[in-house]
Every structure is written in C-alpha cells, then in structure tokens.
C-alpha cells in the first residue's frame, strides 16, 4: 500500500509537469506553425531556433506589473484564472497513460486513478471549466469581458450537449464508462474510430468549441471584444488563462486519443512487448499515445491558422441545428447496426 501510494504521487507530479511543459512548448509550436503557414520564420532569437522562447515568455509574464482594476471584485478577479488552470489540470487524473508496467517485481499502473465513471468525470471537469472564464469575465466589471464570459457560457453549454450525445453512441459499443477498460478494448489496431467515424468528427468539433479554439474562439474575439473575457487581466493571471487553454488542448487531445484512436495501443504491440520485456513495452505504448496527442495538438493549430472565425449566430446554428441532429442520428444508427449485427451472428 505504501509503495503504491508513493508511485501514485510520483505519477501525479510527472503528469503535472508534463502537462505544463507540453502547454509551454505548445505556445512555441503554435508560433512556429503559424509562421510556417504564413511563410514567416517565427521566434528564432532566444536560444537555437528560438527554443528558449517559452521560458522568456514565462519570465516576462511573471515580471509584468499586476493590475487589479478599481471597479473589479478583487477576490473573484483572482479566483477566475486560478479556477481556469485548476480545472484544466485535474482532467488528466483518469486518463490511462499506458499499460501496467512491471519493474523489478513491482507492478506500476500508469493511470492516477481508475474510477468506473471516468468518461463522466472528464465531462464534469469540462463543464466546470467554464466557471473560470465566467467568474473572471464578470469580476472584471467591464462590458467586453462580460460579453466574452457570456459567450463562453452559452457556447460551452450548447456544445456540451452534442459532445455528450456523441459519447453516448461510443458508450453503446464499449458498454463501460471506465477509460481504462475503453483503452483495453482497443487492443492492437481495434480502434473505436473505425466503428464511430461520425461520432469522432462530432467529438472533435465540440472539443474545438469547448477549448475556445479558432474557429470557435468567440469568447476572446479581438475584432469585436478587445480581448474578450481576459481584457482586464495582466501579468501571470493572464498567463494562467492562456496556459489553461493550452493544457485544455493537451487534455482533450489525450481524451480523443484514448476514446477513439486506441490510446496507448498500436498494431503489433504484443510482439513488441514480448521482445523488449514488460518494463519497456508499456513505455513504448506511452510514447505512441503521446505521438497521437501531438498529432491532435498539431491538428488544433493547423485548423486555427487555416479557417477563419465563425460569426456568433453561425456558431449557434452549427451547434443546435446540425451537430445535435447528427449526433442523435448517430446514436440511432449505432443502435440499429449493432443490434442487426448481433442478430445475424457477427
């Protein structure tokens, strides 16, 4: 029990550090990718190829003057960004990062905790994420911030519905809410995306809306709302909001990879594990999972620098009139097809 607890605490710290480092280097990757898409060079001054740019940015954020506006509600003004980063970080607790590792007689579980309602936990954390934006936007006591916060709230609630419906179709096939079991079912190349292609497309569109990424970044639409909900924020409090967005992106990529793209599974994993042993084999699975996550993060950035922002009414039309009917249709289709297959003995 004691060693298990220590392993778990070490795992939590490692995951936390990885989330932060990935979030930091996502800002660098975003700028480099944007530069590539726009035929520029991008950051190249701090260190070789500008590799130290995120550190310089972080240092700048810490050293900037901290301003709390006179008319703001001071306590809630500080709570907002804290809540945003907190909800971004706790989502990683139920994601299975790899198979069980066996090192020197010890079995190490590469998952912080396996609760039997893991999918719903992720969903709850996502729905809680909007509070950071709302509280911060309201406490700033600024019209633009408030409008940004309200947009964030209505956008998140609208897209949560179709996200939930797309997950229901997946759960009808998996028959479990535990992310660990879902990952185990996709052993080898038996990935859920083959059986749920439409569900995956709906899920990724909703993930864009939930993480406030372009083309759905209406809450921070600078052409209309100055800076949106973080207009009044400066220094590291602004940094927390920006950081939370990148951590959210990382976590939602991990969730998508686990739910639809097989998580840590890859074709021929049994053969590899048999050859390199039970200590290294699961680590290769973890590396594969991270490769998938980085591909998704690249996809987020690719879309951001390719597709222009939606208008607000277009966003709501897409959410309510296209995605929700499609998601319900997907549920019906999944039910009919899986029952028919079972009936004809497949």
């Amino acid at each position: 029990m004691g060693t298990d607890l220590i392993f778990r605490i070490v795992l939590i710290v490692i995951i936390f550090l990885i989330s932060l480092v990935v979030a930091m280097y996502s800002t660098y990757a975003e700028r480099k990718i944007a530069a590539f898409f726009q035929d520029r060079i991008g950051p190249n001054r701090a260190g070789p190829w500008g590799i130290l740019q995120p550190l310089a940015d972080g240092g700048k954020m810490f050293l900037k003057e901290e301003i709390i506006p006179t008319n703001a509600t001071p306590f809630l003004f500080i709570v907002g960004p804290c809540l945003a980063i907190l909800t971004a970080c706790i989502g990683s607790a139920v994601i299975p990062w790899g198979q069980k590792m066996v090192v020197g007689g010890h079995t190490i579980d590469l998952q912080v905790t396996d609760i039997n309602v893991g999918v719903l936990y992720i969903f709850g954390v996502v729905s809680l994420g909007v509070y950071g934006v709302m509280i911060g936007g309201w406490a700033s006591n600024n019209k633009y911030s408030l409008l940004g916060a309200i947009r964030a709230a209505s956008q998140n609630i609208s897209y949560e519905i179709s996200m939930g419906l797309s997950i229901i179709a997946l759960l009808m096939l998996t028959g479990t809410l535990s992310l660990k079991e879902i990952a185990e079912q996709q052993h080898g190349a038996n990935w859920n995306v083959i059986r749920q292609p439409l569900g995956f497309i709906l899920f990724i569109v909703c993930a864009f809306a939930e993480t406030n990424r372009t083309p759905f970044d209406l809450p921070e639409c600078e052409t209309e709302l100055v800076g949106g909900y973080h207009t009044e924020y400066s220094s590291m409090k602004l940094g927390f909001y920006l950081f939370a967005e990148y951590i959210n992106m990382f976590i939602s990529s991990a969730v998508m990879a686990t739910l639809y793209w097989g998580g840590y599974n890859y074709p021929g994993m049994d053969w590899v594990t048999a050859h390199v042993g039970p200590a290294i084999g699961p680590l290769i699975g973890t590396v594969v999972l991270f490769a998938k996550i980085f591909l998704f993060i690249f996809f987020f950035m690719w879309v951001r620098w390719t597709i222009p922002r939606f208008r607000y009414d277009q966003l709501m039309d897409l959410g309510w009139k296209i995605l929700i009917p499609l998601a319900i249709g997907n549920i019906v289709l999944t039910g009919v097809v899986s029952t028919a297959l079972k009936h004809f003995g497949f």
Partner: peptide, 26 residues
C-alpha cells in the same frame, strides 16, 4: 453513489447553475 455524485456534478454544477449565473449576469 458515484454515478449520482458525478451526475449531480455535471447537471447541477455544470449546466443548471451556469445558466443561473448566465441569466444573473445579463
């Protein structure tokens, strides 16, 4: 009652009270 807990979390905290807050802010 894990399921009830998480549903209470999603439905009340994540949806209904967000809408309350939304209305009150407007």
């Amino acid at each position: 009652a894990q399921f009830l807990a998480i549903v209470n979390f999603i439905v009340y905290m994540g949806a209904i009270l967000v809408l309350f807050l939304y209305t009150l802010m407007l």
